[in-house]
Design a protein around this nucleic acid. Sequence first.
RNA 1: CGGGGCGUAGCGCAGCCUGGCUAGCGCACCUGCCUUGGGAGCAGGGGGUCGGAGGUUCGAAUCCUCUCGCCCCGACCA
Length: 561
Amino acid sequence: MRFSKMFIPTMREVPSEAEAISHKLMLRAGYVRQLAAGLYIFLPLGWRVLNRINKILKEEMEAIGAQEISMPILHPAEIWQKTGRWYEIKDEMFRLKDRTDRDMCLGMTHEEIMTWLASKEIRSYRQLPQIWYQIQTKLRDEARPKSGVLRTREFIMKDSYSFDTDEDGLEKNYKSHAYAYHKIFKRCGLKFYQVESDPGMMGGATAHEFMAPSPAGEDEIILCDKCGYTANVEVAHSVSPAIKDLKWNYEEVYTPQKKTVKEVSEFLSIEPAYFIKSLLFMAAEGPVLVLIRGDQELHEKKLARIIGQFRTALREEVMSTLGVEAGFIGPMGHKLRILADSILREGTYITGANKADYHIKGIKPHVHFEAEWHDLHIAKEGDHCYRCNTLIRAEKVIEIGNIFKLGIKYSVPLNAVFLDRNGQEKPMVMGSYGIGPSRIAAAAVEQNYDKDGIIWPKSIAPFDIEIIPININDNKTLEVMEVLYEGLTKNSMDVLIDDRDERPGIKFKDADLIGIPVHIVIGEKNLKDNQIEIKNRRTKEIRKVSIENAVSEAIAFFQEI
RNA sequence: CGGGGCGUAGCGCAGCCUGGCUAGCGCACCUGCCUUGGGAGCAGGGGGUCGGAGGUUCGAAUCCUCUCGCCCCGACCA
């Protein structure tokens, strides 16, 4: 491909709206353009990258027996109504009506439609298992699209769905997807982790996410380097640092106007970890008191999994429920549901006295209060691994893939059933598995760049090799350029020639920006010695080779990378 | 949806507070000359409803009101 014939609008300056590295570089290097918030155009270079990623996806999906199909993006509402998601999902779903006033929506994911298809077509256990996948556009009316191509309202997703006769079959397909995903992300040149995750509204008990470490990531994971425990903070367990049991006697202390843990802790010169924070929430079942240690933070999602949707109690509700103002609440003597973080099972603490301006020192679990014990705190760096007690660390990550065991969540409402060996009707056992190709691309950029631009992993670069003729008006240069281009192309290398009549500086800068892994520089000086240069974009290593050997050397050089 | 910021040429910005001459600068773009190993130089040139609407004023990029868009933080994220 010739640069002069390809639309590669590079920019010297970064558009001011871009913040994330991948966003800046993909704009500057001419890979994408923004149409509106969360809507991106993939330009020729960007589209080539996506296609390379998709090719890897297809190969690895086919390798585990998945079959590619293509489903509509426009869905009738009835199917989504049957599973209930039409009502559960709110503004996130794009909804519309057709000309006959029929409710429709744009697909944010395809569990419903895939299950519908299975319900129509699969009758017998003999037809199972099936794995169907597609690489298809998804539409989600995101509250806040951000970071360029990382979070958009319309994006392409590789989504696959497995249908099995039983849990064992699902387990097998779940595992083979995990295996395929490892291969895919490895082939794409990404650093990544597989972590335990929250199944969320997808339902089912088990889910994992594939996470590419990057400061631009929106998610955070917890890692234990010793035992290998990795989990999304949304579900991560941890053991907060141990504290001594100071065995104070139960006594009231005067703490005028000191309400927050920080204030009382400073006032009494006692570490926050010796305090119990008492928080009142209003759930569907009524008020619930939640206790966590002073140095912990409540994980609202963990709490929501236990008591359902809730909100913070208003000042008046605290007063009417507990008879004390917020800031001096203690867990003693109340008749309501009390949940406490498990760490509070042991020790002696300080807490509100249920009386304005007073705290209680010396409160002990089981003696002065009872509670349901749960993991309610946010795991963070400095905590210990709940499995092996080693110090854990946290990392920012980009979610690039996920796998869910769905079970029969969708097959039951949509009546996707089959007859088993004994002629018994049973719901299919399902799994769903997603990968975002544009997130792979963005994560690859986030993990591979320098001050000059992108450094693509060679498996997903838009081209393998870029040829840079220094002076396009030199006949010898042109001649060598054509010979190399032909030679490399014949050996199935994807080659971009910068045949523009531009100054060398511009070509070098653009080449570095665009980030093709290998550059071949043809200059008049080296030609006099019958040589050309082969350069590694990442390391800047340059190898001079003779023109005769240039093709084979360049290929070898590419393969070494 | 809550908080903050920004909309002036393709990109990056100045001008706005304190209203006033033809709306300016760098890069990019076009023409010519020159130049060719890391975003050259000289000369000439094109491109703007100052996001939009309404208002105040003799006069609005500038002041006021409304509105639209984009970005960032948070909430949300199937």
